[in-house]
Nucleic acid binder design. Structure first.
Lengths: 334, 334
DNA sequence: ATGCGATGGGAAATCGTTCTCCGATGTGTC
DNA sequence: GACACATCGGAGAACGATTTCCCATCGCAT
């Protein structure tokens, strides 16, 4: 019942630990007869390799650290699920850290994971600027892949949705629907998602109305802000409220209904991300779907490549920034 | 830049690895002067202890496996967040596994975590019966704490909300509001949450109407089922729809609105769990809040106790089942 | 017969800590 | 002054795997 070790299997099968290791790991050919004996003994004793000892010797834990801003952000659970599956399929276990949207905590958790000898890190940086130093440090030690949000150019490999393209999809759709007085409700933070979506709006909205790029309100990525923003912009009667993410859009939708506005007749509301909540809102939210599965798959692939290249960014080529195409989901809200 | 080890620090500070280990781990008193020198050298070289080697020697990884049915279930992210924080505060890292609501996958992930030498397991079992064997096996090897859902009596320590008390809160509230024709929309699965909530409804509903305990529809814990269930029960015009969780309730709410029902005037709708979605529904959902923070804290506490007692359930006393008091949140839906 | 390469197997070093012995040096007491 | 005793430090054995040497054996060609 205690721990069965290689030594036990060796004793039971009458050969050396070296041989047993070779048979079980298949690292070198071993005589057929011996192999059979060893495998039998291992089976009979219920031998299970000790990953800790293996990690110490191989200098690889088979473990990846996943550090994210806040698991309660409804966009993340689906991403975490896909990542967990993709990494598990690659034989790696996932250490999870939630850093409460705080860059200092984030830096601490990254450092802890490095101390725990993770083979690689998957990061969703809290902030583009304030996360950079910790991320860059980490990238010097192990392969790092940034997800969903960036962290300045060249710091590490990254995978994200093409936010600009997504926003353009929204604007094109609104234009085709004849909307001409959009407002943008975004986030003031310095995450790349906030910045990119806002920049794309400002760049693309002029096609609808020369003055549209100026009609921008910035708060944070929350339902509460969506509600509050509506109170500020509704007096100027927009015919579309373009939100930087679904949470904001849901808040906007709620407040507009309270104010008796007709959505989508009078005003369209759009979101971004396609969180589960979006399809449940009333009216269901027109939004931009992020390719979550592909995001996770690409991240896992990048990680595998970097790991194969033998460690940190120094060995392999320059860092790559992968952008995946978003998809517009037209629903009832606009 | 490579790895600084105890040996390096020993060399640099002119003493033995044993002494360095003692100074840094504080495991035995060491002369003040020596200690200073060692600490200085460690600092100067940027020494970081290798957790893998430590784990091998100490036979403890400082790691806890968290296995849950589906992270995308909206009740779990908040729980995961609290658990992660509580465990981190106790100096333990969290290995995460999502098992796609499949008992076989669950068993496999548990086994993998044991191979990885986790010190303990935190499990939200997929199913009361079909998870039992794997859970019981695991509990024989390391401390196990079951969360939110149970797995049969005596299998392992468990922490959950008092589902019966929660359901009774709902029924009392409905009774006080004069509702007399409730229907229950629950889940047919064999999770303890499904079973306990349903049993509590059947036990308590008779106080509202002798025939109420029979008015029960069972499906699964999903929005879609909530919608479908309304189509089946609306013809008999209940004045309250008691749902086994918030997802069902949100679906019910949606469908009732589509059918032109007046909520809460004509019919009340209640949920269970208080997921973020509940407060965002329209009308906002009356529901039972689970004490998520306390749940996580208790789980962490149990784990710490069991671990202190030195290993699996055999050493310490019988398994404990902790039930926390729920709280009724009366909102607009009933 | 000798040499040579291939093949299968074992002994032992190694990974970086922790921890158990042991020995050496005081310190206090009778 | 001697003996018990605490205190501090070092040497070295674990922990459980992997991996590098090295040796023995065998087949085969010279």
């Amino acid at each position: 019942m205690a721990e069965v070790t290689l030594k036990d299997v060796a004793r039971a099968s009458g050969c050396s630990v070296a041989t047993v290791s070779r048979v079980l790991a298949g690292t070198r050919p071993v005589g057929a007869e011996t192999a059979r004996t060893v495998r039998e003994a291992a089976e009979r004793l219920g031998y299970r390799p000790n990953h800790v000892a293996r990690a110490l010797r191989r200098r690889a834990t088979g473990t990846v650290g996943l550090v994210l801003p806040q698991i309660t952000n409804p966009f993340f659970p689906a991403l975490v699920q896909e990542l967990e599956h993709a990494l598990h399929a690659a034989g790696r276990a996932v250490l999870l850290a939630d850093c409460d949207d705080d860059p200092a905590t984030e830096a601490a958790r990254i450092a802890e994971f490095l101390d725990r000898q993770v083979d690689a890190l998957l990061l969703i940086p809290v902030d583009e600027r304030r996360s950079r130093e910790a991320v860059a440090d980490a990238a010097r030690r192990v392969p790092v892949v940034l997800l969903d949000r960036g962290c300045g150019p060249g710091v590490a490999d990254s995978v994200a949705v093409d936010n600009a393209a997504g926003m353009q999809l929204v604007l094109d759709h609104l234009a085709a629907a004849g909307r001409r007085r959009p407002w943008f409700v975004g986030a003031a933070g310095t995450t790349t998602t906030a910045a990119e979506r806002r920049a794309a709006y400002e760049a693309g909205a002029a096609a609808l109305d020369p003055e549209a790029p100026g009609r921008v309100e910035l708060g944070d990525f929350s339902v509460a802000w969506g509600r509050a923003a509506v109170d500020r912009i509704w007096p100027s009667r927009p015919d579309a409220v373009v939100c930087a993410n679904d949470l904001i859009a849901v808040g906007a939708l709620q407040r507009l209904r309270q104010l008796g506005a007709d959505v989508p007749g009078e005003v369209a509301v759009t979101g971004f991300d396609d969180v589960p909540l979006a399809g449940l809102a009333d009216p269901a939210l027109t939004t931009v779907r992020q390719p979550v599965t592909e995001l996770a798959a690409e991240a896992a692939r990048l990680l595998a490549e970097r790991s194969a290249d033998g460690g940190p960014s120094d060995g392999a080529g320059p860092s790559r920034a992968i952008r995946l195409a978003p998809q517009l989901l037209v629903r009832a809200s606009g």
